[in-house]
Design a protein around this nucleic acid. Structure first.
Lengths: 300, 300
DNA sequence: CAGCAGATGTACGATTCGTTACAGATACTT
DNA sequence: AAGTATCTGTAACGAATCGTACATCTGCTG
């Protein structure tokens, strides 16, 4: 029968977590402090529960910086900060609230963000399970081959993802061409195709006639066709040498491009690895040009 | 009868939590030590992460007892015990996702696809944890307001994602404008901005001067600014009314746009829900137009 | 009941940790 | 371009913590 002293313990906070407090104060923090804040949130709350010096080293800042930030957040000192972190952890474990069916805390599990993210995660899982690594590697090898020209083709919506691939490939290697199948000019590009060239085609639901025609002509010219499509597969797949299908269903009137984008980014990364020595030179040159145009900001 | 101990005990390093280790050792502990063990397990792991003296007082035992038990469990000292507790906590929060250690079967876990997907999943998890649902809802409400014009602005790479948002918004509601900050024509668009209009700005690493200038002018005109940026946050965030930051680090020389895209798609879905009756009409009209242009295939 | 062994707590010393003061560096202003 | 304000790290100080030695207590055994 120990004196139950709750009542006061309900004051156990304004229901605002320290993570949120950090998040909210981010604007008032300085550079080094933000760097530290990121490190804390990176693996929260574990890193904040260790010694001050360890946290400082992990974040790449110095001890006093840690202290200053902690005080800015309204704590008396580092020990005070740690105490509240532990309290928070204690409460969190105590509430057996169905955790991870919500991705963003503080939103009902039926919130768009949670429903949407659930679907996307499922899509990624399913899509990847169906992809043959050998096919992926083969596609990357084709794209990385400097002797082949690369044509990238997208449709009304998917051309945005196609352009994303194009913009990166353009930096990595020469002879990359972005073809707008929505425009009337695409036949001109087919003129330049020759046997062995590679055509990367994006075609998802509401498959477009232009895209199919372009693919047929390219196929006839002996070009290799790599197709990124959805789970129902565009008619282009009959002509394609390599085909990747992504699940794209989400709780929305439209389809998701997340999985195709993930594939594209993985490809970029893989191709860049293959061509790294060349790519590095091209990137340095590009940097120099950017410097001259003053297009980007120089600091952080 | 405390014979059995070594031999297998080397495996005690991995995959066995400290809680389990305590449970298992419960028999070999003395009365005061068991009392302490219960207190630790009572609210685990929070209580073990505080100072030794606090734990001792909480359990009703004295300092040295804590130390002796901890050493019995095989730790060098109390700090060592705490360090492993923190490691465990770190792994615990990391794991709910990466329980799949390979995503695509048949590829080594070191394959690009697996490494990349791991990183992306982590990004999604971290980013969403930092997003305030209220801010998201507020942003969607702004975009869904038919009385406000919507300007969508992207940079050299991010304009692809910006355009993705634009293409969908264009279907959902009128008065949506896509501004190319890479082009010289953007000042013309600023001319048309008026107080209450909404500017959706995409700005990730290699923050662009044009994007910042455009935002400053828009801000001066009294437009609401919704910013989608990375974890380091574009300088535009100082002007923004609502800011979403996504983790974008992947094993590649470039950054990932998956998380920003996920946010964009969620927004599209949410806005479409708000405006559904209007959207449906617009979509039907659009379908009719498409039919006449014969742009899409009629089947599947 | 006497004696002993293990268990437990108290008090002190050594060490690590958190904190403060100060100086160098950086960015911004006039 | 010089000056100023702010930020940031190094170094020393003081405080709290951990670990150890020792004394006390409890419970078991003969």
């Amino acid at each position: 029968m120990k004196a139950i002293k709750m009542g006061v313990s309900t004051l156990s906070q304004q229901a605002i977590t320290i993570a949120e407090r950090i998040q909210r104060a981010l604007d008032t923090l300085t550079r080094a402090e933000r760097q530290l804040a990121q490190a804390i949130l990176e693996n929260y709350p574990a890193s904040g529960l260790g010694p001050l010096s360890a946290l400082a080293k992990d974040a790449g800042v110095s001890g006093p910086t840690v202290l200053r930030m902690v005080q800015k957040l309204g704590f008396k000192g580092y020990p005070d900060f740690q105490t509240e972190l532990r309290e928070e952890l204690r409460d969190k474990v105590k509430n057996p609230i169905s955790k991870h069916d919500t991705w963003t805390e503080g939103a009902p599990s039926g919130h768009v963000l949670n429903r949407f993210t659930d679907a996307v995660m499922e899509n990624i899982r399913h899509s990847l399970a169906q992809i043959e690594p050998a096919a992926f590697d083969a596609a990357c090898a084709l794209i990385a081959d400097p002797k082949r020209k690369i044509f990238i083709v997208g449709g009304r919506i998917s051309h945005t993802i196609a352009e994303y691939l194009f913009l990166h490939m353009q930096v990595i290697r020469p002879d990359v061409i972005h073809v707008q199948s929505t425009s009337n000019t695409w036949p001109h590009y087919v003129l330049d195709m020759k046997e062995g060239d590679v055509v990367v085609v994006f075609d998802v639901r509401r498959y477009e006639n232009n895209t199919l025609k372009l693919s047929e002509l390219a196929h006839a010219k002996g070009a290799k066709i790599i197709l990124l499509t959805d789970q129902w597969r565009s008619p282009v797949h009959a002509l394609s040498d390599i085909c990747f299908s992504s699940r794209i269903v989400v709780p929305s009137a439209w389809d998701s491009a997340v999985m195709p984008l993930l594939l594209v980014e993985s490809m970029i990364s893989a191709v860049q690895d293959i061509l790294w020595t060349d790519t590095r030179d091209r990137m340095e040159t590009l940097e120099a040009i950017f410097d001259q145009t003053k297009m980007f900001r120089k600091f952080t």
